[in-house]
Protein backbone atom coordinates (compact mmCIF):
# COMPACT_ATOMS: atom_id res chain seq x y z
CA UNK A 1 0.00 0.00 0.00
CA UNK A 2 1.52 3.28 -1.04
CA UNK A 3 1.51 5.90 1.66
CA UNK A 4 1.82 8.75 -0.81
CA UNK A 5 -1.57 8.33 -2.44
CA UNK A 6 -2.47 11.85 -3.56
CA UNK A 7 -6.15 11.12 -3.44
CA UNK A 8 -6.73 8.82 -0.48
CA UNK A 9 -10.08 7.05 -0.67
CA UNK A 10 -12.52 7.49 2.18
CA UNK A 11 -11.73 4.43 4.25
CA UNK A 12 -15.04 4.06 6.06
CA UNK A 13 -15.40 0.36 6.56
CA UNK A 14 -13.28 -0.30 3.53
CA UNK A 15 -10.25 -2.44 3.38
CA UNK A 16 -8.29 -2.05 0.21
CA UNK A 17 -5.21 -4.01 1.07
CA UNK A 18 -4.62 -5.53 -2.35
CA UNK A 19 -4.14 -3.41 -5.42
CA UNK A 20 -7.09 -0.98 -5.18
CA UNK A 21 -7.62 -1.00 -8.91
CA UNK A 22 -7.93 -4.76 -9.04
CA UNK A 23 -10.26 -4.83 -6.07
CA UNK A 24 -12.48 -2.14 -7.54
CA UNK A 25 -12.70 -4.01 -10.82
CA UNK A 26 -13.70 -7.24 -9.13
CA UNK A 27 -16.20 -5.44 -6.98
CA UNK A 28 -17.77 -3.83 -10.00
CA UNK A 29 -17.96 -7.15 -11.77
CA UNK A 30 -19.54 -8.80 -8.74
CA UNK A 31 -22.04 -6.04 -8.09
CA UNK A 32 -23.08 -5.67 -11.69
CA UNK A 33 -23.36 -9.45 -11.97
CA UNK A 34 -25.78 -9.56 -9.07
CA UNK A 35 -27.67 -6.53 -10.37
CA UNK A 36 -27.87 -8.23 -13.74
CA UNK A 37 -29.41 -11.37 -12.24
CA UNK A 38 -31.87 -9.23 -10.32
CA UNK A 39 -32.91 -7.62 -13.59
CA UNK A 40 -33.40 -10.85 -15.53
CA UNK A 41 -37.04 -11.42 -14.53
CA UNK A 42 -37.86 -7.94 -15.74
CA UNK A 43 -36.07 -8.54 -19.03
CA UNK A 44 -38.11 -11.70 -19.54
CA UNK A 45 -41.25 -9.82 -18.59
CA UNK A 46 -40.73 -7.11 -21.19
CA UNK A 47 -39.69 -9.55 -23.92
CA UNK A 48 -42.68 -11.82 -23.29
CA UNK A 49 -45.02 -8.88 -23.32
CA UNK A 50 -43.96 -8.22 -26.92
CA UNK A 51 -44.46 -11.77 -28.17
CA UNK A 52 -47.34 -12.93 -30.32
CA UNK A 53 -49.48 -15.63 -28.73
CA UNK A 54 -47.92 -18.38 -30.84
CA UNK A 55 -44.48 -17.77 -29.30
CA UNK A 56 -45.54 -17.53 -25.67
CA UNK A 57 -44.57 -21.04 -24.67
CA UNK A 58 -41.30 -21.21 -26.61
CA UNK A 59 -37.94 -21.25 -24.89
CA UNK A 60 -36.60 -18.44 -27.05
CA UNK A 61 -36.67 -15.24 -25.07
CA UNK A 62 -36.65 -12.95 -28.08
CA UNK A 63 -39.89 -12.49 -29.99
CA UNK A 64 -39.43 -12.97 -33.75
CA UNK A 65 -41.81 -10.12 -34.38
CA UNK A 66 -42.41 -7.39 -31.88
CA UNK A 67 -46.14 -7.27 -31.31
CA UNK A 68 -46.53 -3.83 -29.77
CA UNK A 69 -50.28 -4.11 -30.17
CA UNK A 70 -50.29 -6.27 -27.00
CA UNK A 71 -50.08 -3.10 -25.00
CA UNK A 72 -53.17 -1.80 -26.74
CA UNK A 73 -55.02 -5.09 -26.46
CA UNK A 74 -54.73 -5.06 -22.67
CA UNK A 75 -57.17 -2.15 -22.63
CA UNK A 76 -59.50 -3.69 -25.19
CA UNK A 77 -61.83 -5.78 -23.06
CA UNK A 78 -64.58 -6.01 -25.69
CA UNK A 79 -62.41 -7.71 -28.28
CA UNK A 80 -64.29 -10.67 -29.78
CA UNK A 81 -61.04 -12.62 -30.11
CA UNK A 82 -60.69 -14.29 -26.71
CA UNK A 83 -56.91 -14.54 -27.01
CA UNK A 84 -56.60 -10.84 -27.61
CA UNK A 85 -59.21 -9.73 -25.14
CA UNK A 86 -57.94 -7.50 -22.40
CA UNK A 87 -59.41 -6.27 -19.15
CA UNK A 88 -60.81 -2.91 -18.06
CA UNK A 89 -57.21 -1.98 -17.44
CA UNK A 90 -57.64 1.77 -17.70
CA UNK A 91 -60.42 1.61 -15.17
CA UNK A 92 -58.38 -0.53 -12.73
CA UNK A 93 -55.48 1.85 -13.14
CA UNK A 94 -57.67 4.81 -12.39
CA UNK A 95 -59.30 3.07 -9.41
CA UNK A 96 -55.90 2.29 -7.93
CA UNK A 97 -54.63 5.82 -8.36
CA UNK A 98 -57.89 7.28 -7.08
CA UNK A 99 -57.95 5.14 -3.95
CA UNK A 100 -54.23 5.51 -3.26
CA UNK A 101 -54.41 9.29 -3.69
CA UNK A 102 -57.31 9.67 -1.30
CA UNK A 103 -55.71 7.42 1.29
CA UNK A 104 -52.47 9.33 0.96
CA UNK A 105 -54.16 12.70 1.35
CA UNK A 106 -56.19 11.61 4.38
CA UNK A 107 -53.39 9.70 6.03
CA UNK A 108 -50.83 12.47 5.67
CA UNK A 109 -53.33 15.03 6.97
CA UNK A 110 -54.48 13.06 10.00
CA UNK A 111 -50.98 11.82 10.78
CA UNK A 112 -49.47 15.28 10.58
CA UNK A 113 -52.10 16.69 12.92
CA UNK A 114 -51.70 13.83 15.36
CA UNK A 115 -47.93 14.08 15.17
CA UNK A 116 -48.19 17.77 15.97
CA UNK A 117 -50.33 16.93 18.99
CA UNK A 118 -47.78 14.36 20.11
CA UNK A 119 -44.65 16.40 19.50
CA UNK A 120 -45.57 20.05 19.99
CA UNK A 121 -48.52 20.22 22.34
CA UNK A 122 -48.19 19.43 25.98
CA UNK A 123 -51.45 18.00 27.20
CA UNK A 124 -52.11 15.68 30.12
CA UNK A 125 -52.11 12.02 29.15
CA UNK A 126 -50.21 12.67 25.94
CA UNK A 127 -47.44 10.18 26.53
CA UNK A 128 -49.82 7.44 27.57
CA UNK A 129 -51.89 7.87 24.42
CA UNK A 130 -48.72 7.88 22.35
CA UNK A 131 -47.57 4.65 23.94
CA UNK A 132 -50.89 3.12 23.02
CA UNK A 133 -50.37 4.25 19.42
CA UNK A 134 -46.89 2.73 19.40
CA UNK A 135 -48.32 -0.50 20.76
CA UNK A 136 -50.82 -0.78 17.93
CA UNK A 137 -48.03 -0.63 15.37
CA UNK A 138 -47.20 -4.17 16.44
CA UNK A 139 -50.76 -5.38 15.92
CA UNK A 140 -51.15 -7.75 13.01
CA UNK A 141 -53.62 -6.16 10.62
CA UNK A 142 -55.23 -9.55 10.12
CA UNK A 143 -56.68 -9.52 13.63
CA UNK A 144 -58.87 -6.55 12.78
CA UNK A 145 -59.95 -7.71 9.34
CA UNK A 146 -63.04 -9.72 10.22
CA UNK A 147 -64.61 -7.14 12.56
CA UNK A 148 -63.67 -4.39 10.12
CA UNK A 149 -65.46 -6.24 7.37
CA UNK A 150 -68.55 -6.61 9.55
CA UNK A 151 -68.38 -2.90 10.37
CA UNK A 152 -68.26 -2.18 6.65
CA UNK A 153 -71.33 -4.35 6.11
CA UNK A 154 -73.14 -2.41 8.84
CA UNK A 155 -72.13 0.90 7.30
CA UNK A 156 -73.13 -0.33 3.84
CA UNK A 157 -69.69 0.39 2.48
CA UNK A 158 -68.80 -3.02 1.05
CA UNK A 159 -67.75 -2.78 -2.59
CA UNK A 160 -67.45 0.99 -2.46
CA UNK A 161 -64.42 3.24 -2.61
CA UNK A 162 -65.06 4.87 0.77
CA UNK A 163 -65.03 1.41 2.26
CA UNK A 164 -61.63 0.91 0.71
CA UNK A 165 -60.25 4.29 1.66
CA UNK A 166 -61.46 4.91 5.20
CA UNK A 167 -59.81 2.05 7.13
CA UNK A 168 -56.49 2.82 5.47
CA UNK A 169 -56.66 6.53 6.14
CA UNK A 170 -55.49 6.41 9.75
CA UNK A 171 -52.06 5.17 10.52
CA UNK A 172 -50.07 4.83 13.70
CA UNK A 173 -46.91 4.39 11.63
CA UNK A 174 -47.42 7.69 9.82
CA UNK A 175 -48.01 9.45 13.12
CA UNK A 176 -44.85 7.96 14.51
CA UNK A 177 -42.76 8.82 11.46
CA UNK A 178 -43.90 12.44 11.36
CA UNK A 179 -43.51 12.82 15.11
CA UNK A 180 -39.87 11.80 14.71
CA UNK A 181 -39.48 14.47 12.04
CA UNK A 182 -41.22 17.15 14.05
CA UNK A 183 -39.18 16.47 17.15
CA UNK A 184 -36.07 17.38 15.18
CA UNK A 185 -37.44 20.87 14.44
CA UNK A 186 -36.08 23.34 16.99
CA UNK A 187 -38.71 24.27 19.58
CA UNK A 188 -37.53 27.86 19.68
CA UNK A 189 -39.16 28.49 16.31
CA UNK A 190 -42.72 27.91 17.39
CA UNK A 191 -42.13 29.41 20.80
CA UNK A 192 -41.08 32.60 19.08
CA UNK A 193 -44.18 32.49 16.92
CA UNK A 194 -46.41 32.00 19.93
CA UNK A 195 -44.88 34.96 21.67
CA UNK A 196 -45.68 36.93 18.54
CA UNK A 197 -49.29 35.90 19.00
CA UNK A 198 -49.69 33.00 16.63
CA UNK A 199 -52.34 30.43 17.48
CA UNK A 200 -51.54 26.74 17.71
CA UNK A 201 -53.14 26.25 14.35
CA UNK A 202 -50.95 28.92 12.76
CA UNK A 203 -47.88 27.40 14.34
CA UNK A 204 -48.87 24.08 12.84
CA UNK A 205 -49.78 25.42 9.43
CA UNK A 206 -47.13 28.08 8.92
CA UNK A 207 -44.13 26.70 10.75
CA UNK A 208 -44.25 23.00 11.51
CA UNK A 209 -45.83 21.79 8.27
CA UNK A 210 -43.42 23.59 5.93
CA UNK A 211 -40.50 22.53 8.09
CA UNK A 212 -41.44 18.86 8.00
CA UNK A 213 -41.90 18.73 4.27
CA UNK A 214 -39.34 15.95 3.67
CA UNK A 215 -41.15 13.82 6.22
CA UNK A 216 -44.52 14.54 4.64
CA UNK A 217 -43.21 13.64 1.20
CA UNK A 218 -41.66 10.42 2.50
CA UNK A 219 -44.86 9.38 4.21
CA UNK A 220 -46.86 10.31 1.13
CA UNK A 221 -44.72 8.12 -1.11
CA UNK A 222 -44.85 5.19 1.29
CA UNK A 223 -48.60 5.47 1.69
CA UNK A 224 -49.23 5.88 -1.99
CA UNK A 225 -47.09 2.93 -3.00
CA UNK A 226 -48.44 0.75 -0.22
CA UNK A 227 -52.01 1.40 -1.28
CA UNK A 228 -51.29 1.19 -4.97
CA UNK A 229 -50.02 -2.30 -4.19
CA UNK A 230 -52.41 -3.20 -1.41
CA UNK A 231 -54.09 -6.53 -1.85
CA UNK A 232 -55.86 -7.98 1.17
CA UNK A 233 -58.43 -5.33 1.89
CA UNK A 234 -59.43 -4.69 -1.75
CA UNK A 235 -59.65 -8.45 -2.21
CA UNK A 236 -62.27 -8.86 0.49
CA UNK A 237 -64.04 -5.55 -0.12
CA UNK A 238 -64.47 -5.42 -3.88
CA UNK A 239 -67.14 -7.48 -5.58
CA UNK A 240 -67.86 -5.79 -8.90
CA UNK A 241 -65.34 -5.70 -11.68
CA UNK A 242 -65.73 -1.99 -12.30
CA UNK A 243 -64.39 -1.32 -8.80
CA UNK A 244 -61.30 -3.52 -9.03
CA UNK A 245 -57.96 -1.96 -8.26
CA UNK A 246 -54.87 -2.90 -10.21
CA UNK A 247 -53.67 -5.86 -8.10
CA UNK A 248 -57.14 -7.40 -8.00
CA UNK A 249 -57.57 -6.72 -11.70
CA UNK A 250 -54.25 -8.37 -12.55
CA UNK A 251 -55.18 -11.45 -10.54
CA UNK A 252 -58.55 -11.54 -12.26
CA UNK A 253 -56.76 -11.29 -15.59
CA UNK A 254 -54.57 -14.26 -14.71
CA UNK A 255 -57.44 -16.42 -13.54
CA UNK A 256 -59.81 -15.57 -16.39
CA UNK A 257 -57.42 -15.52 -19.38
CA UNK A 258 -54.78 -17.99 -18.30
CA UNK A 259 -53.38 -18.55 -21.77
CA UNK A 260 -52.73 -14.93 -22.66
CA UNK A 261 -49.37 -14.72 -20.92
CA UNK A 262 -48.18 -12.11 -23.42
CA UNK A 263 -51.08 -9.78 -22.54
CA UNK A 264 -50.67 -10.46 -18.83
CA UNK A 265 -47.00 -9.56 -19.05
CA UNK A 266 -47.87 -6.36 -20.89
CA UNK A 267 -50.27 -5.51 -18.07
CA UNK A 268 -47.69 -6.42 -15.43
CA UNK A 269 -45.11 -4.27 -17.20
CA UNK A 270 -47.46 -1.35 -17.26
CA UNK A 271 -48.17 -1.66 -13.57
CA UNK A 272 -44.50 -2.11 -12.60
CA UNK A 273 -43.02 0.67 -14.72
CA UNK A 274 -44.69 3.57 -12.86
CA UNK A 275 -43.35 2.18 -9.60
CA UNK A 276 -39.83 1.92 -10.99
CA UNK A 277 -40.03 5.50 -12.26
CA UNK A 278 -41.36 6.77 -8.94
CA UNK A 279 -38.61 4.94 -7.10
CA UNK A 280 -35.83 6.29 -9.29
CA UNK A 281 -37.13 9.84 -9.11
CA UNK A 282 -37.89 9.90 -5.39
CA UNK A 283 -35.38 7.46 -3.94
CA UNK A 284 -33.66 10.17 -1.95
CA UNK A 285 -36.75 10.56 0.22
CA UNK A 286 -37.42 6.84 0.39
CA UNK A 287 -33.98 5.85 1.58
CA UNK A 288 -34.07 8.57 4.25
CA UNK A 289 -37.54 7.59 5.31
CA UNK A 290 -36.76 3.91 5.66
CA UNK A 291 -33.68 4.64 7.72
CA UNK A 292 -35.57 7.09 9.92
CA UNK A 293 -38.71 5.01 10.30
CA UNK A 294 -36.72 2.13 11.70
CA UNK A 295 -35.29 4.12 14.59
CA UNK A 296 -37.77 2.84 17.11
CA UNK A 297 -37.94 2.96 20.87
Amino acid sequence: MSTTDPNPPIQRGSNLRINPLLTATWMHLLLSGVAFIMCLPFVWMVLTSLKPLSEVGLDTWMPTTYQWSNYRDVFDYENPDINRRGIQFARFYWNSIFVASWVTFLQVTTSAMAAFAFSRLNWPGRDRVFLMYLGTMMLPGLVMMIPNYQIMIELGLVDTFPGLILPAAFSAFGTFLLRQFMLSIPASLDEAAEIDGASKWRVFWDIILPMSRPGLITLAIFTFMGNYNSFFWPLVMLKSESHYTLPIGLMYFDSSRGQSTHLLMAAVTMSVVPMVVIFIVLQKYLVKGIQLGAVKG
Partner: peptide, 30 residues
Amino acid sequence: QKRQLVWGLLFLSPNLIGFLVFTLIPLVLS
Protein backbone atom coordinates in the same frame (compact mmCIF):
# COMPACT_ATOMS: atom_id res chain seq x y z
CA GLN B 1 -54.04 22.82 31.32
CA LYS B 2 -57.55 22.38 30.05
CA ARG B 3 -56.82 24.58 27.08
CA GLN B 4 -53.77 22.48 26.29
CA LEU B 5 -55.92 19.37 26.46
CA VAL B 6 -58.50 20.86 24.11
CA TRP B 7 -55.85 21.81 21.57
CA GLY B 8 -54.21 18.43 21.85
CA LEU B 9 -57.45 16.57 21.35
CA LEU B 10 -58.46 18.85 18.50
CA PHE B 11 -55.33 18.01 16.60
CA LEU B 12 -55.49 14.38 17.55
CA SER B 13 -59.20 13.81 16.98
CA PRO B 14 -59.25 13.03 13.23
CA ASN B 15 -56.65 10.35 13.74
CA LEU B 16 -58.04 9.21 17.07
CA ILE B 17 -61.56 8.68 15.74
CA GLY B 18 -60.26 6.58 12.88
CA PHE B 19 -58.03 4.74 15.31
CA LEU B 20 -60.98 3.95 17.57
CA VAL B 21 -63.32 2.88 14.78
CA PHE B 22 -60.90 0.88 12.67
CA THR B 23 -58.39 -0.41 15.19
CA LEU B 24 -59.51 -0.41 18.80
CA ILE B 25 -63.16 -1.42 18.40
CA PRO B 26 -62.33 -4.14 15.85
CA LEU B 27 -59.62 -5.39 18.15
CA VAL B 28 -62.06 -5.81 21.03
CA LEU B 29 -64.72 -7.28 18.75
CA SER B 30 -62.20 -9.73 17.38
